[in-house]
């Protein structure tokens, strides 16, 4: 099949939300794009701008299709391919750009890769937007707010926004709900472990944003906590003796090192 046929077929199946079909078509299209030297724009390729725009929209479909079928690594690789296209000044801005890039930021947040998150955030300054302006953008506002709340420890706000499903400007954001909740739940659990001595089950359920007591129980088993009288106990002092033994060994080791060094000086 020629590139035109494939492309029109791709946009048809994408419009019909048949994401699996899209993902089947894409490898062939990518091969053809490579042959035409369109997949990676560079300073030297003097390709026709409209060709590049079409390539860009194909890649955008690829990104959206893979995220809708929950193929996160596929999504990241499409974003990597798309980035040089978004840097091109010769093309008019794509309407999907902010949406895709903010989805990518959200993905980085879910994976806990804050370093990369900030690197990507800095790159956005290339599009002439400062952080304040980004926060006003309906798409970028979401990952930026989330990051701020997570760093502050204000997890309740994250939960509030995630659970009010209709507030997102597009449906793809909801796909991250489960992953993001799981990742903040783990952070909350470790926080709770070190800051409470006891906690009633009912309160733990609320704090972890769990819906029923069974979930709470399985989570408690997973974390290895101890339940007594409908209260969870977080025991912190079990390792004190071990510490002391290690401590003595350490002192001994240090003293020996000092002796050795002294000897080499004298």
């Amino acid at each position: 099949m020629s590139l035109e046929q494939l492309t029109s077929q791709l946009s048809k199946s994408f419009a019909a939300n048949k994401y699996a079909e899209c993902l089947n078509l894409l490898p062939q299209i990518k091969l053809q794009l490579i042959e035409q030297n369109l997949l990676v724009p560079s300073l030297t390729t003097a390709a026709n701008p409209s060709d590049l725009a079409i390539t860009r929209s194909i890649l955008e479909i690829g990104a959206l299709a893979s995220i809708n079928s929950e193929d996160l690594s596929g999504f990241s690789s499409y974003i990597t391919l798309l980035k040089p296209f978004y840097d091109l000044t010769s093309l008019p801005d794509s309407p999907n750009k902010n949406k895709l890039l903010s989805l990518y930021l959200l993905l980085l947040l879910t994976q806990g890769d804050l370093a990369l998150f900030h690197i990507e955030l800095e790159r956005l300054a290339n599009f002439g937007l400062s952080v304040d302006e980004l926060e006003k953008d309906q798409y970028f506002a979401i990952p930026i707010k989330f990051e701020k709340w997570i760093i502050d420890g204000d997890f309740y706000k994250v939960y509030e926004l995630l659970s009010s499903k209709h507030s997102f400007p597009c449906k793809e954001f909801n796909l991250f709900e489960k992953e993001l909740l799981d990742s903040i739940r783990l952070t909350i659990a470790t926080n709770i472990e070190s800051s409470y001595t006891t906690l009633p089950l009912e309160n733990l359920k609320l704090l972890l944003f769990l819906s029923n007591l069974d979930d709470v129980k399985s989570y408690i088993d997973q974390m290895g906590w101890f339940v007594h009288n409908n209260e969870v106990h977080f025991d912190k002092r079990s390792s004190a003796i071990d510490d002391e033994i290690n401590d003595e060994k350490q002192i001994l080791k240090n003293a020996l090192t000092y002796a050795k060094e002294m000897e080499s000086i004298v």
């Binding site: 502050d152 420890g153 204000d154 997890f155 309740y156 952070t187 909350i188 470790t190 926080n191 709770i192 472990e193 070190s194 800051s195 409470y196 704090l207």
Partner: peptide
Amino acid sequence: YIVAKAIK
């Protein structure tokens, strides 16, 4: 939540 995080 914030205090819990600070303790952690």
